[in-house]
């Protein structure tokens, strides 16, 4: 029974990792750069949800608003700043987004302080579900259900729409799109906003589970990297499978060896790199 509990926990965690990784992936797919500010957007989403709920806004309103606000902020940053870095070497893409992450992190500390805080699960989901002798927090079930719906919507967006085709095919087709009269700059901005918004949404969803603190960004960024290294960049299925694998592995380890649970994620990744240098799905 504890295992079932941990596996459910792992699925919830894994779906959050999936959201993070997919956001990173779509940005990379179209813009060909790794967004090192991704963890900062995740943190910002969490803090915005936290701040709104603190001020009496319903969580159900705060959740989408936090995601949306991060998306809009990120889109504006892309349009004003990051766009100008694209033509430079990839060292400078990384430098610019590392700089952006620092700026976001420091603003978060200035506004909310360095300590962090906790966010109670929303009303109506603060209880537990009892099935026989199995007990599970309602909010975590909600996270699983919500992210599953979101994953479906993303699947449709990425596999079934023209935007998805552009993102998946990468930058060469972006040039073709420009020839066909699509405004690639607007698409770039929209996709960057979408990717960052997903990170923000993941942060807002995670806030009632893990609380908020200024260090959550690095952790999120590195876990997203692990998922992407294992599952492959630009692969929806890869991000889903690797996200769930990492989440479930971490959750199960938490009962077996609590102190080493997060260590195991990275050791597992190292083992996969030794055995399968190309990751689980053998891409790129």
């Amino acid at each position: 029974m504890t295992y079932l509990f941990q596996i459910l926990n792992g699925i919830g965690l894994g779906m959050l990792y999936f959201l993070l990784a997919v956001g990173l992936s779509v940005i990379f797919g179209l813009l060909q750069f790794v967004n090192f500010a991704h963890g900062a957007f995740y943190m910002l989403g969490a803090y915005l949800a936290y701040a709104m709920v603190e001020r009496g806004v319903s969580f159900w309103l705060a959740l989408p608003l936090a995601g949306l606000a991060v998306a809009v902020l990120a889109a504006v940053t892309e349009a004003v700043l990051l766009r100008r870095v694209y033509k430079q070497a990839h060292t400078f893409h990384i430098l610019a987004t590392v700089g952006l992450a620092l700026v976001v992190q420091e603003i978060v500390i200035i506004v909310w302080g360095p300590i962090g805080g906790n966010l109670a699960p929303p009303e109506g989901l603060s209880g537990i579900v009892i099935l026989g002798d199995f007990v599970y927090p309602e909010y975590r079930l909600f996270v699983i259900a919500f992210t599953a719906v979101l994953a479906g919507a993303l699947w449709w967006l990425l596999e079934g729409t023209r935007l998805g085709a552009i993102v998946r095919a990468g930058s060469e087709s972006a040039e073709d799109m420009a020839l066909l009269g699509y405004d690639t700059r607007r698409i770039n901005t929209a996709v960057f906003g979408l990717g960052a918004g997903l990170a923000g949404l993941a942060g807002a969803l995670a806030a009632p589970i893990r609380g908020v603190d200024p260090f959550m960004s690095v952790e999120a960024l590195s876990v997203a990297f692990v998922v992407v290294v294992i599952g492959g960049m630009g692969s929806y299925a890869g991000a889903l499978a690797a996200g769930l694998a990492v989440g479930i592995a971490q959750s199960l380890m938490a009962t077996l060896w609590p102190e080493g649970a997060r260590l195991m994620i990275y050791l597992g990744m190292a083992a996969i790199i030794v055995m399968m240098p190309r990751g689980l799905f053998g891409r790129a």
């Binding site: 700043l81 100008r84 870095v85 430079q88 070497a89 400078f92 893409h93 430098l95 610019a96 590392v98 700089g99 952006l100 992450a101 620092l102 700026v103 992190q105 420091e106 603003i107 500390i109 200035i110």
Partner: peptide, 18 residues
Amino acid sequence: RWLLLLGALLIAIALFMQ
């Protein structure tokens, strides 16, 4: 919170001072 300025400097280096 001087790291905020550092972050801004990094963006500036990426843009103007590679």
